[in-house]
Write a protein that binds this DNA or RNA. Sequence first.
DNA 1: CTGTATCCGACGTGATACTG
DNA 2: CAGTATCACGTCGGATACAG
Lengths: 133, 133
Amino acid sequence: MRPEHIRVPALPPLPDPNHGDCRAVGSVLARVGDKWSVFVIMTLIDGPRRFNELKRTIGGISQRMLTLTLRGLERDGLVTRTVFPTIPPRVDYELTDLGRGLAAPVRSLGEWAFAHLPEIEGARTKFDGRNDG
Amino acid sequence: MRPEHIRVPALPPLPDPNHGDCRAVGSVLARVGDKWSVFVIMTLIDGPRRFNELKRTIGGISQRMLTLTLRGLERDGLVTRTVFPTIPPRVDYELTDLGRGLAAPVRSLGEWAFAHLPEIEGARTKFDGRNDG
DNA sequence: CTGTATCCGACGTGATACTG
DNA sequence: CAGTATCACGTCGGATACAG
């Protein structure tokens, strides 16, 4: 039997990624997948942090991106923003219950990624090397 | 006690998001977080699929982005690409063991997202409305 | 059928300067 | 300290045309 005769035998029913709900899930995944959200969430797990505390702890993030990331998380109800009208001003950011709930699966994903980093990086090197030589 | 006197009591040790490993984890999260990878992974859970099968099933993805997404997943060792040298050509994509392993935490995240969609969308509406009116 | 090549607009990200 | 405003740049993603 040649390759062209190998048929996938009538596909089983699919979870239909087109369904609106799956699209919406995508919007959540997009937030988690942006460059900084996960770092912020993980940093806030241990308790509330101030703006510059977050900036120093995360490191490498610009003021602008930290602001935008925090706004996004706040918009999604994952983080609260508390302003203390003092001089100098102080703003605390803290995970909501919703945010803490999200942190769990995110942590799972992170742990999986960490555990399988060697395999992934090995695969990348192998793949890239194949294209060069 | 006024707000400016409320002090976070000497921060507990942090998981240091600056550590190289955490950065590397970010690169995995970045893949999962891109626009299409999760859809492709979820579609491939039930078994191997051909290029246009994926395209039709996912829907809304361009030929270009499907190609790029699949190349990325292949590069990371999450998907295999099998070419059948027939006319017309046929290419099967299938999750590797590594890819199936990733699918589990991704599914957890997706289920969390699905379960909490109302809360998130509610928070978004509330946040956006506060800015308009 | 399964891609690659090209163009182009939209968006994400960073650097810098400025404000309350 | 905690932002906002602006600019500059690169990448992402879509549309279209072409190729094996």
